[in-house]
Amino acid sequence: MIKTLNFILVCTSLVGLVGVYALKFHVEDTASAKSALERQIERQQASLSLLEAEWAYLNQPTHVAPIIARHNEVLMLQPTKPTQFAAIDSLPMRPVVQLDTTALDVLFESLESGVDPIEQLIEASENGTAL
């Protein structure tokens, strides 16, 4: 009775020993993986911040203006003069076209009654060429 109990206890402690050591090494591995990842994140954040700074620098008027000055032979850019501005309101309206309403009325009436004056014209010209 006491022998089996001892045997079980020894086995349990052996399993416990192996388990704890395994856990310890596993944690150490995880910790080093974690610090490696942290290091990687830190480096990526660093390079990201550098890229963002560069982007900001490239967008500055201080950076863009000299480029324009350098290439102005091709670009030919000049500051806009006040006289070159205009508002939509100051554009003249389209000239008013007087529609010949009576002629249109006649056209619509003849179309309604089944006579197409354009078709008649085409037919007449075809007949003319045939003749």
Binding site: E42, Q45, A46, S49, L50, E52, A53, A56, N59, Q60
Partner: peptide
């Protein structure tokens, strides 16, 4: 929204 001052991470 144009950046005037930014932080960069340096070692």
């Amino acid at each position: 929204g144009l950046e005037m001052a930014v932080d960069i991470r340096v070692p």
